[in-house]
């Protein structure tokens, strides 16, 4: 069985907001180390990977590995019934087809109980190799959100170029184009500043639609890391106290 007590429902609410438009159904894989989710979007171009460590919960118990197949739309609706600062307890019995959620109000005796149907989801798990990326960029997550939102007004794609000069985001739309250069900030480390590590010049193009979606995770962390190597998927990573959310996005290829 699973019993996990989260100090604040906000983390789960934000996580669901970050993935619900990318993925419809997914397995939350629970084991004694915590809860993991890996799912691809329909087109298999983007992948989201979530980790919530057991140590990030106020109380956590999972006797044996348990996949909780969830419709993310339904989960979002049930989580909307929780206040951000409610204590959130999730429970599932072995082989059960129900996930129960309890929200305990912080400053009152209100206890709300919800149940959600679980489903069998047959999804392939991808084996993501450890990669030594050619470039790592760390920047304020709000800055990344602004860049991808701004450029998505102009075109469908963004070219990300990492060079000695810094990291440049370039959008070439039909009617307008734009580019934004971020230089490494020498006197300011993350979360406010930008750091760039580069072994090799990188030049890759990605669909902005997905990046705008990934940027929703800025509610979970003030810092985002972009890891890039030529001709391999981009890794966009947000770390927070209880775990992380990572996105992989296949690069666009020239014709």
């Amino acid at each position: 069985m699973l019993e996990a007590r989260l100090a604040e429902a906000a983390i789960l609410k934000r996580l669901l907001d970050s993935i619900k438009e990318l993925v419809t159904d997914a397995n939350f894989e629970c084991n004694e180390e915590g809860i993991n989710l890996q799912a691809m979007d329909n087109s298999h171009v983007a992948l989201v990977s979530v980790k919530l460590s057991a140590s990030g919960f106020k109380k956590y118990r999972c006797d044996r590995p348990l996949p909780l197949g969830v419709n993310l739309g339904s989960f979002t609706k049930v989580l909307k019934c929780a206040k951000d600062d409610d204590v959130c307890i999730i429970k599932a019995a072995d082989d059960a087809d129900i996930l129960s959620l309890t929200y305990e109000a912080r400053n009152s005796d209100r206890i709300a109980e919800y149940e959600m149907k679980l489903m069998d989801i047959d999804a392939d798990t991808l084996n993501i190799p450890d990669t030594d990326y050619d470039a790592r960029v760390s920047m304020p997550s709000a800055e990344f959100t602004r860049i991808v939102r701004d450029l998505s007004q102009l075109g469908e794609s963004v070219r990300i170029e990492v060079s000695k000069e810094g990291v440049r985001f370039i959008s070439d739309g039909e009617a307008a184009n734009g580019n934004i250069l971020l230089r490494q900030t020498d006197d300011d480390a993350p979360p406010e500043g930008v750091t760039i590590e580069m072994n090799q010049h990188v030049n890759l193009t990605f669909s902005l639609k997905y990046l705008v979606n990934f940027a929703k995770s800025s509610t979970l962390s003030n810092v985002v890391q972009l890891m890039l190597s030529n001709d391999v998927p981009l890794l966009v990573s947000y770390d927070f106290n209880q775990g992380h959310i990572r996105y992989y996005l296949a690069p666009k290829i020239g014709d």
């Binding site: 691809m40 087109s43 298999h44 171009v45 983007a46 992948l47 392939d124 798990t125 991808l126 084996n127 993501i128 190799p129 794609s157 193009t205 669909s207 391999v232 998927p233 992989y248 296949a250 690069p251 666009k252 290829i253 020239g254 014709d255």
Partner: peptide, 14 residues
């Protein structure tokens, strides 16, 4: 026009 490969091409199934 640029296009994308699927991630299956980069990451093998477990």
């Amino acid at each position: 026009v640029a296009d994308q490969h699927s991630l299956d091409r980069y990451f093998g199934a477990k």
